[in-house]
Nucleic acid binder design. Sequence first.
DNA 1: AATGAATGAGGATTCATTCAT
DNA 2: GATGAATGAATCCTCATTCAT
Lengths: 193, 193, 193, 193
Amino acid sequence: MPKVGMEPIRRTALVQATIVEIGARGSLDVTVGQIAKRAGMSSALAFHYFGGKEAIFLAAMRYTLTLYGAEVRGALATAEGPRQRLLAVIGAGFSPVNFRREVIAAWLNFYVLAQRSPEAKRLLAVYQRRLISNLTHDLRPLTGERAGGIARRLAGLIDGLYLHCALNPKGLTGGDAAAQVRAALEAELEAAR
Amino acid sequence: MPKVGMEPIRRTALVQATIVEIGARGSLDVTVGQIAKRAGMSSALAFHYFGGKEAIFLAAMRYTLTLYGAEVRGALATAEGPRQRLLAVIGAGFSPVNFRREVIAAWLNFYVLAQRSPEAKRLLAVYQRRLISNLTHDLRPLTGERAGGIARRLAGLIDGLYLHCALNPKGLTGGDAAAQVRAALEAELEAAR
Amino acid sequence: MPKVGMEPIRRTALVQATIVEIGARGSLDVTVGQIAKRAGMSSALAFHYFGGKEAIFLAAMRYTLTLYGAEVRGALATAEGPRQRLLAVIGAGFSPVNFRREVIAAWLNFYVLAQRSPEAKRLLAVYQRRLISNLTHDLRPLTGERAGGIARRLAGLIDGLYLHCALNPKGLTGGDAAAQVRAALEAELEAAR
Amino acid sequence: MPKVGMEPIRRTALVQATIVEIGARGSLDVTVGQIAKRAGMSSALAFHYFGGKEAIFLAAMRYTLTLYGAEVRGALATAEGPRQRLLAVIGAGFSPVNFRREVIAAWLNFYVLAQRSPEAKRLLAVYQRRLISNLTHDLRPLTGERAGGIARRLAGLIDGLYLHCALNPKGLTGGDAAAQVRAALEAELEAAR
DNA sequence: AATGAATGAGGATTCATTCAT
DNA sequence: GATGAATGAATCCTCATTCAT
């Protein structure tokens, strides 16, 4: 029963299905047919809306990064003072929305995608730059010129813990991981005092 | 002209070719034909020796992990005292042998492989456990019961920096990365004092 | 904004777009979507008017043949005497209207279409019969019973020169080609004297 | 039962099957699967040996042109004097080997292929050049400076008659067609006298 | 030991065509 | 009258894997 204005609905369905499929199979070896099926349509329609598999992947990346960005902004909105803001930024990455099994697996595979897709690379680079920039901004009042280095280390730790969770989803909850990053932050603040 | 005793030579050639190919393409989407060609033999022979593509990948993982393990042991052999030993463990991961573009890309893809191959997962888990165990062992005399947490954070940071290098090989040298981990170590030691 | 009486306009637009597309791509591997797009409408509308791709092609053929026929009739209208009439028939095929790159390419592909479509075959056969009949009619007063053979040869030459132009549009202008046919006519007339 | 040295056999089988299929369907809309099936192998093997559909088509063209060229050379070998040689060249194109339904249909489609494939275009151009050159060479002693024009007209007529036969295989035998070209030759010689 | 030959299965992509609005 | 939505059926091409030699 065809209708008008389906495009955004279909696109969103495909993007979400893509993340789920990548998460389920743990790799980008996902067929457009699988994605389309999970999204409840034919693969031909997926091609119609996205033009190609790569474009679907990139849309899924953008969607994920947008979700993450929204979470960060939301957390920052209510945070007061640098310390609270740092905790907000850290917590956002491990919030239930972002720290789901499939999303984590998708992240991992976005790094793989970035190896061959310049646009994917660019998107990840933007994410990293923003994260480091956010952290640096709020570390500066607390740690002065050390802020940049600390931010880089915290960002590295965050991504590393994501990697560990991609390997062992059961072994490390989002709360555990966030606690680890907070502990690292405390240590760095302590050392910078 | 077939020869005897070729097996180990062929296997090694294939394993190294596998790492190079994964590095070159940035993903596990590497054909057995490509690997075999780079190793200078027919794909049929690759199958003869390994029995399947998965087995080739796993052999490449074991090879990489073995190399890494040897580097760690070598560095530990000459290190004296916990602090030196910690620096040795940290440095091993960023030594020129291990911190090469293709090896880093291969590592990333081993995490992907681990999503679908239990054996790959096991190998990576062993690696992580050993790393954390090594770090904990030498952190204990310096930080007591905090050692476990710190080790986990340092391990996470190490893997996270690998991830960053997989994304931007030019932006972060092995030396830079190692310095970051050492800085984190210093901060943790400072805070634990 | 739908209007009434659009049918003939739409049909003509589609038919002309078809010839242009066949000319541009040099083959019948033209999608209905491409044709419809060039004609400024959706492919669904093209189906609405023609019922199928084959019918669009056949309409394009009829259009082309009609144009050609009109050119011939127009040239004959002012020609006086058999010789003038022969030159008129010959010239019509190489007139600027018919001897355009895309029309020539379309002709070639109509021969291909005729291999599988009986209707296309019929249309081309009618064209050939008329051409030979026209030539024979005016050759008779000049060459008597030899007229039929000469007509067949002139017709063959005309189509052969079209073929050569389909291959190398730059190498042979319409004027050159017409001159060749006229030269052949002169030779035949000379020999028949 | 795999054997060694199959490549030339397979290639030839595919090339011949290609001509038959193009002839049977009357167009280049032939699937590699159909060709491979008729040649008695899987389509994967066809790709293995040729690398792509286009390459199969081009090989079929080269095969056809080579066959034609051999026929011409064979006929010229026993011909004495310019007139005999001209008749030999003319006859070769309509000999039973070349003037078969499927070969004629293939020729037609090679012209279509030439619209999009530069290599196909080149091959046809070489064929035309050789034909005209052969004819000119033997016309010169008989017709002097008129030779070039006559050769071009005869070549055009030959290709045109091929086209007519592609349309109506029953209506014009190879013998009829050859007779027409010979008649045109006589007329030109007569007129040039 | 080594490989050329061979294929089945699968996957991205295209497209003619249909249909509800 | 007109179109966006939708898909089934191809089709090209790839690739892991097997096998006879």
